[in-house]
Nucleic acid binder design. Structure first.
Length: 939
RNA sequence: GCAGGGAUAGCAAAGCCCGGCCAAAUGCGGUGGGUUUAGGGCCCAUUCUCGUAGGAGUUCGUGAGUUCAAAUCUCACUCCCUGCACCA
């Protein structure tokens, strides 16, 4: 087997020596290929190769097509995950230490990882090693990370632009919050890494009929307000009369601390739920006075602990009310329940229907009632129509929003946010996570109408691959709205408008590809971060300032400024951005928005390529399954080229690539074949070209033409089925047909290897040299198709031979069962080739589609009309899809005649061929162009 | 809920954009055969049903429709997957 690792090492060294990947401004057209830089909180695994490998493939391919392609790379270190892991290390968390140990990190290094900067550097270093070994043609002289002071300067400039254009706004914002530590909590900050889910409810104010206090009912379904028969509290729980944002209200005592960061709440007095049961409340929508009753199901720590009861539509309410009614604790009758929504059936009490669907006798537990609740919620939202009230006739979906808005406008309700996870969420410190409305939070206003309009009208200009993701981009662009852009903790750039905070880590990584274009220059000339003023960036990006002034104000030499500007404008004109498709709804959309806002139109994104994930042996790679293969291990084991092939070209871009040992083996075998063939090539002969040589040339050139078209459209899978798999089959067939011409094979292999080189650069380089070349293959040109060598006839005739062989085998199998053939063996097989008039008539019929016209044509006057008609009849059935037959009777005859040896070897019988006119067999007439009549003789 | 994607033979998966060359690529699995044949690998054949000659029938989530013609277009329905906010 090929020793991939030693080939890799050999060529990595050679490429490094030749500085093959370092690119600079040149005469020829430039392309900047960037992939979303990796977040370095763990080593990369083989799945990461998909994105970076695809970007590398594209870079290499475009270079072979004559472009100057720069593929740079950096590291993302902004944000909280690195900090969180490092904190865990510092607190001696055994689980995290195990994880790190499994990555093969020494105890000593793990200890040092309590320093987040050490950890980030460590993983950045490991990541770079892996990327080099994967063969990415990255220009490492431009490497930076996102906490680098120069990077921060770029971010400051970007936010200065956004601020000047009034796209930074402040407001209040609901966040998951730890009341103990006083800061926002995300997934990384909770026990068990649970993402706190926030959801919005409407809190409706029912006035107490004999005081100025309100019962504050939180609900997901404000549209059912028309059907309220009573309110529920839980008589066994404690309740409080509170002052909440200026009004008096009753809420459960347990809800007070959960809401107290969201609202200002002062407790006036406390009471048992049972004490509230004597009260009555007024429904704000219709003034109806309703009683307060005991709801067994009311949870005091969910929202306000007071709920409105809509027995006709809420299964829990129905069950609770029925219970009360059965025990005589209420005199509300079922026929008083108000139905306010019509949906699929005509039940007067829809909730009852859903309960009975689960159990006719209504002997239900809470879980079952919950199920019924979900079911009715779903159905009524989708199909329900308001049956009462101001919005009668409108769909529930629409009416809900309208009613909510009306109530809020009339000050009868307000929004309330809760943590809606099934189980309470706890901060690592132990406190229960609650909702807080953060005041003065800065947002980037992606909801700005003009901004959105500009982006939406530019979106069709961007080449997006895979094509079907265009919809997703469109949807993402429409959907993106205010986006929080700063936060209190984490690594990163200080937020210019509030230096206590840092720029949020997706917001700081939207325009950074621009920095690659001149980072190496800043580095070379040892430019200090403080020299990178607003003026500097304004000059480089807009070119509108006077360069002398900028040079003076920044202290950067004229020629350095000029080079930065030139480099930026050269590389940023055509950019190709690569990432996983999971980033469409955040990073990539923000990338587009920020480019459109910050840069002149000529530098807006030109191309975006996204890709799907990678499965390992049929399942997703994940930490919990323990099936993550680190990139470097994968390369050691399978070879970089093998990983590259499987991940870059063996699946459609948008699909999950399947990595399995089987697929590895299959590629290894095929590569072995190619290596052997290349090594054997010297022992072959160069002879005069025969038919099968032309066949192979035709296949090759067709392949070059079609595959190139496919590569251009990022249809890599099909391109490489043709370039790799089909080529091998064609070679095998060529040899089987007796081909053995050194020049032809060498031509074929050379072009095939050139086309494989962007995917498998190491093997291709090795094979290229074994073929006797001394240049680097990556500096060679992509093969060009020679149209004159594409010969439809020769390929078609070859396939006629093969289909005839198949048909014959099948015919023999079936006829061997015939009584007359029982006990006999096949003696010989004869192929009868259709006479020339059949070819002519075939073409005429194909062109005209008119049978009688063909029959009556003068040129067929020699032939019996009944005969022509009998011949054409079957063709009529599929007349609209007849293939073009570009050759004639004698071509088909010759092909068979010269292939007799091959055919009889395949079939194992003597084979002969005859023209139809020379045959006296009654089956001879069955011959058609491309379909000789087959006569099997038995003895 | 909102948004995006999906449902194809034993399994996995292509085809669908651009209707006919589609009983439907390919891989795995199954069956039979070959290979100086332990195993594995490799090669060949076969793998919806029927068939006394290269053919016929019935299939591509369900139901309807458009069409001379539908896996492919339209509509409805059912079910599945992914993302959803400060988090990379």
């Amino acid at each position: 087997m090929v020793d991939y690792n030693s080939i890799e090492k050999k060529w990595l060294d050679e490429w490094e020596k030749a500085k093959l990947n370092e690119k600079d401004v040149e005469e020829k057209e430039g392309i900047l290929v960037t992939a979303a830089f990796p977040y370095v909180d763990m080593p990369q695994h083989i799945g990461h190769l998909r994105t970076y490998g695809t970007a590398d493939f594209y870079s290499r391919y475009k270079r072979m097509r004559g472009f100057n392609v720069l593929y740079p790379m950096g590291f993302h270190k902004t944000g909280t995950p690195i900090l969180a892991i490092s904190k865990k290390v510092a607190s001696n968390d055994p689980k995290i230490k195990d994880d790190l140990k499994n990555y093969g990190i020494s105890d000593e290094d793990i200890k040092k990882m309590s320093d987040p900067y050490f950890m980030a550097d460590y993983f950045a270093r490991v990541t770079e090693i892996g990327m080099r070994r994967a063969g990415y043609s990255i220009d490492w002289t431009r490497k930076f990370d996102s906490i680098n002071p120069i990077f921060s300067k770029m971010v400051e400039w970007q936010f200065n632009v956004l601020n000047n254009k009034h796209e930074l706004v402040t407001g209040e914002h609901p966040v998951g919050w730890c009341p103990n530590e006083g800061n926002a909590v995300g997934q990384h900050d909770t026990k068990g890494d649970v993402q706190p889910e926030l959801s919005e409810l409407t809190a409706i104010k029912f006035k107490d009929s004999d005081s100025d206090a309100y019962f504050i009912c939180a609900t997901y379904r404000p549209e059912t307000l028309y059907g309220v028969s009573n309110l529920f509290v839980n008589e066994n729980e404690d309740y409080s009369l509170v002052e909440l944002d200026g009004i008096k209200g009753y809420i459960s005592s347990k809800s007070v601390p959960l809401l107290s960061d969201e609202y200002s709440i002062k407790v006036i007095s406390n009471m048992k739920g049972s004490e509230l049961l004597s009260k009555k409340a007024i429904n704000p929508i219709n003034g109806k006075v309703v009683p307060i009753l005991n709801g067994f199901f009311v949870k005091p720590d969910f929202a306000t602990g007071v709920v409105m009861s809509v027995p006709a539509h809420a299964p829990f309410d129905y069950m609770a009310l029925k219970k009360l009614s059965d025990s005589g604790k209420t005199d509300i009758k079922e026929n008083e329940y108000i139905k306010c929504i019509d949906s699929e059936n005509n039940d007067q009490i829809p909730s009852l229907r859903y309960l009975k669907n689960i159990d006719q006798s209504l002997n239900l537990n809470s879980e079952q009632i919950e199920m019924a609740t979900k079911e009715i919620y779903r159905t009524e939202l989708r199909k329900g129509v308001m049956a009462v009230g101001d919005y009668i006739g409108k769909g529930v979906n629409e009416a809900r929003e309208l009613i909510k808005q009306d109530l809020i406008n009339k000050n009868d309700a307000f929004k309330i946010y809760i943590i809606s996870n099934k189980e309470p969420v706890y901060c690592r410190c132990g406190a229960r996570v609650i909702v807080n409305l953060v005041e003065g939070q800065w947002f980037i206003n992606y909801g700005d109408k003009d901004w959105k309009k500009t982006v939406n009208s530019y979106l069709p200009e961007i080449s997006i691959y895979p094509k079907k993701d265009i919809n997703a981009f469109q949807a993402a662009s429409d959907w993106i709205d205010l986006r929080a852009t700063e936060r209190a903790q984490g690594l990163g750039t200080k937020f210019p408008l509030n230096p206590e905070h840092i720029v949020e880590s997706l917001s700081d990584s939207t325009i950074y590809p621009m920095l690659y274009t001149f980072y190496n220059i800043l580095d070379n000339y040892k430019i200090k971060p403080e020299q990178l003023t607003i003026d500097f960036f304004d000059y480089v990006v807009y070119g509108k300032l006077n360069i002398e002034d900028v040079s003076k104000s920044t202290g950067i030499e004229y020629k350095v400024l000029k080079r930065c500007r030139d480099s930026f404008t050269y590389w940023y004109r055509f950019t190709s951005r690569h990432s996983g498709s999971d980033l469409i709804f955040n990073h990539l959309t923000m990338y587009i928005y920020n480019h459109v806002m910050v840069f002149p139109e000529e530098f807006w994104p030109k191309q975006i390529v996204t890709n799907g994930l990678v499965n390992y042996e049929g399942v997703k790679m994940s930490k919990s399954l323990g099936n993550i293969v680190p990139l470097i291990d994968g390369i050691d084991k399978y070879g970089a080229d093998t990983l590259r092939f499987i991940e870059i070209v063996s699946a459609d871009l948008d699909k999950t690539a399947e990595f399995s040992v089987d697929s590895v083996n299959s590629i290894h075998q095929k590569m072995d074949y190619i290596f052997n063939l290349v090594d054997r090539i010297g022992s072959m002969k160069s002879e005069e070209l025969s038919k099968i040589d032309f066949w192979l040339y035709s296949k090759l050139n067709r392949k070059i033409r079609d595959a190139t078209e496919k590569v251009e459209k990022f249809d890599l899978r099909n391109a490489y089925i043709s370039i790799f798999y089909d080529s091998l089959n064609e070679l095998r067939y060529y040899f089987e047909r007796g081909g053995n011409n050194e020049i032809v094979i060498s031509d074929f292999l050379t072009k095939m290897i050139l086309m494989i080189s962007p995917v498998m650069p190491f093997s291709a380089e090795e094979l290229w040299h074994r073929l006797g070349n001394n240049s680097f293959i990556s500096k060679e040109e992509w093969p060009i198709c020679d149209e004159s060598l594409i010969d439809d006839s020769i390929e078609l005739l070859e396939s006629v031979i093969n289909s005839s062989i198949e048909d014959t085998a099948k015919a023999i199998e079936l006829t061997s069962k015939m009584d007359e053939n029982k006990g006999k063996n096949v003696k010989s097989v004869e192929f009868i080739i259709a006479d020339q008039w059949k070819y002519d008539a075939y073409r005429d019929l194909r062109n005209s589609g008119n049978m009688s016209k063909v029959i009556n044509d003068d040129k067929f006057k020699e032939i019996d009309k009944a005969k022509i008609s009998k011949y054409l009849m079957p063709l009529m059935k599929t007349v609209k899809s007849l293939n073009d037959i570009p050759y004639n009777s004698k071509d088909e005859f010759e092909t068979f005649d010269t292939s007799i040896e091959f055919i009889s070897k395949k079939l194992g019988f003597d084979v002969s061929v005859k023209h139809e006119k020379d045959s006296d067999s009654d089956r001879a007439f069955r011959s058609y162009p491309g379909k000789p009549s087959i006569i099997v003789r038995w003895n």
